[in-house]
Amino acid sequence: MLAFVLRRVMQSVVVLFVMSLVVFSMINLVGDPVDMLVNPESLPEEIDRVRRDFGLDQPVHVQYWKFLLGAISGDLGKSFIFGRPALALMAERFPATLELATSALVISVTVGLPLGVYAGLRPDGWGTRIIMGGSVLGISVPTFWLGLMMIIVFSVVLGWLPVSGRGETARFLGIESSAFTLDGLRHLVLPATNLALFKIAMVIRLARAGTVEVMALDFIRFARAKGLAPRRIVLAHLMPNILIPIVTVLGIEFGTLIAFATVTESIFAWPGLGKLVIDAIVNLDRPIVVAYLLFVVTLFLVLNLVVDIIYALLDPRVRLQGDET
């Protein structure tokens, strides 16, 4: 077991290293960031000074080596735009993204699970057709466009909810979150729902498939033979059995939520990591892009690693198989 974990950790480190190399070399193939940093009419001396300040005058491999040493000690360079350490900027923005992604996760489960279970219990009902049709649509509709439509309906036409930004935050149990103030919640609802949409369709499908599968099992029939009410059968016998796989998949998919947050944050001007990186991409703010990339790669590697380890703990037979999710 320990050998398995060590091997997977080593693999992850190698992937991370290769990624950093790829990113760094590719980023040096495109555009000169100095053009972005200085006024085109600046004097050549001025340009050279900026180039030296950011260490851009040195050979590429030296730059990479310095970057790698820095990265190991937690220094991913300074943002060209903000003039501050990239890692500090990201740390500042991360809580907002985490809050958004978590809220979206909660919404997708609270909405998707009941709908999916319903569809599984009544496979031929009208409600089921509507739910499943909706989930096909949910997968087809580009979420960013739905986000815009939500703004039009709820903010512009009805005027119920604010268009953009993050509202007031408050501290509760040591967690700073906008979920603890009314203003914060009002700001959170639209972006979180928008981010949740794609996952809702997924949860519905998973819950439906699980329900159909579990309801056909003997212990459900036995529970009915005991004279239990349908409510009790669903809550005490069906739910615990379908939740295990759903939670596992959602765990793996949490990284995807963080990634998709880039789109949602751009629509709703949510001050999180995603907005930071999109702005950085548009402004060619290299250190931020690189830092974000390494952060996301690390996040995914860690999530995959954790899931693999849990699987291996539960079932040794999975140990040697590839990741088929």
Binding site: D218, F219, F222, K226, G227, P240, N241
Partner: peptide, 18 residues
């Protein structure tokens, strides 16, 4: 069901919720 008439099924390994 379960009160005046009870039923026992064939496979004991699957009759109980795991």
């Amino acid at each position: 069901r379960g009160n005046r008439v009870a039923m026992i099924f064939q496979d004991p390994t699957t009759s109980l919720n795991p």
